[in-house]
Computed example of a mutant assay.
Amino acid sequence: MTMLKAAPFFPEIAEGPGNGASYWVETADGFRLRVGSWRVPGPEKGTILLFPGRTEYIEMHGRTAKAFANFGFSTIIIDWRGHGLSDRVIADPNTLHVDRFSDYQLDVAAMIATASELEMPKPWFLLGNSMGGCIGLRALLNGMPVSACAFTAPMWGLKMSKVQRLIARPVSWAAQAFGRGESYIPGHNGENYALSNPFEGNRITNDPDQYGYWVRQARLQPCLQTAGSSMRWLHQSLSECGRLTKARSPNVPCVAFCGDHDGLVDINAIRDRLNDWPDGRFEMISGAKHALLLETPRVRQRIISEIAAHFEGFGDG
């Protein structure tokens, strides 16, 4: 029986399986994080460790957890430091900031410990979305105990023009060096994306219902929301993506998806990685934008069913 302390959870906006719960956990460096879980009540095929993306939080993946529960998978998910109800890193609660990208691996360790304490059913599988894909790849390289993995629009590189790519690292480095690391990236601000951008022309999804799902959550529980990223986050992210580019792909069966209309991550970096991944497969989704797990029913059904089949194929560990 777990001794974890219960944390606030909002099932009415998550629309996940009926048995959702969340818990407070502490990292090795003293951050209090929130970890959530949905346990399948019947026969269990294992647990998906869902690593969410930048600005995301537990409730935002309630519908995804419900879809995987229909295939027999339980889900455990985390609010990264600076996200959701987890401790913020700097004074401005709207800014997504991290001191070192490796700090997220301390969050991973806390999540793994929680999954063990909750006795989440094995085998375990990784699903990394966007920034969670970057954190997840590093966790795999560090030996995270999963039988297979999947990624949706993983952030293994940021989409930039040639000019942006040329200046992003030195400018973000200089911002840190001169005490401006907590300032917003140019073009970012303290406004939540869903509340400040209409569905028309958004860069997240083609599905108005899924976009509305995020908007309703943002209006009903603004405490879960964040906004733009800091210059230090940008520099740390670029540096980590560069380091990962030089690392050999782990020997863990993998499938990855990306939309050909994704305007946030570097599609070539994803393709290159999967070309060099033992037992790896890459699928491009025509017409899809960045948030594949919030895309149209056709896209969501395809991706979730393929990931479930992929995990089932390696269920014996």
Rank of each mutant, 00 (worst) to 15 (best):
V299P: 10
G212T: 11
D266A: 06
E240W: 00
C241W: 00
Q210E: 06
C223F: 02
A291G: 12
V255N: 01
T226E: 03
F257P: 08
I267H: 12
I267E: 06
G259Q: 05
A227T: 13
R248E: 10
N251D: 15
H290T: 09
K289R: 15
I267P: 01
L292P: 07
L274W: 07
A218Y: 07
V252A: 00
D279H: 14
R243C: 03
E240G: 00
K246A: 13
Q210P: 03
W233G: 00
L220N: 10
I270W: 01
W233H: 01
A247C: 12
S239Q: 06
L264D: 05
C223Y: 06
I270V: 15
Y211G: 03
M231S: 08
V265F: 02
M284V: 14
Q225L: 13
R243M: 06
E240I: 04
S249N: 15
A227I: 10
C223E: 13
F257N: 07
I267F: 04
V215G: 07
W277D: 09
N268A: 13
T296I: 08
W214V: 13
M231H: 09
A247R: 14
I285V: 15
E295I: 11
M284G: 14
T226L: 06
R243Q: 09
C223M: 13
H290M: 06
L244D: 01
T296P: 07
L220Y: 05
E295P: 12
Q236K: 13
A218N: 13
R281H: 15
T226N: 12
T296M: 09
R219C: 02
A227F: 08
L274H: 11
V215C: 11
P278G: 03
R248D: 12
R232M: 05
I285Q: 13
S237L: 03
E240F: 02
D260S: 12
L238N: 00
G259M: 08
Q217F: 03
D279M: 11
D272I: 11
A256T: 11
M284I: 07
L244E: 01
G287P: 07
G259D: 00
V255F: 05
A218H: 09
P278T: 10
G242M: 05
L294D: 10
D276P: 01
F257W: 08
D260M: 07
L293G: 05
A291F: 01
A218K: 09
S229Q: 10
A291P: 00
G212H: 06
N268H: 08
V252F: 01
R219F: 02
E283T: 10
D209N: 07
Q221R: 15
N275K: 15
S230P: 03
S229A: 14
D207A: 03
D262H: 10
A247Q: 15
T296A: 06
H235K: 04
V252M: 01
L234F: 04
V252I: 14
L220V: 06
Y213A: 00
L238P: 00
S286H: 15
P208L: 08
P253Y: 04
D279I: 09
A288P: 09
Y211T: 04
D207S: 14
S249E: 14
L274T: 14
G280H: 09
S230R: 04
R243A: 09
P222E: 07
Y213C: 02
Q236V: 05
T296S: 15
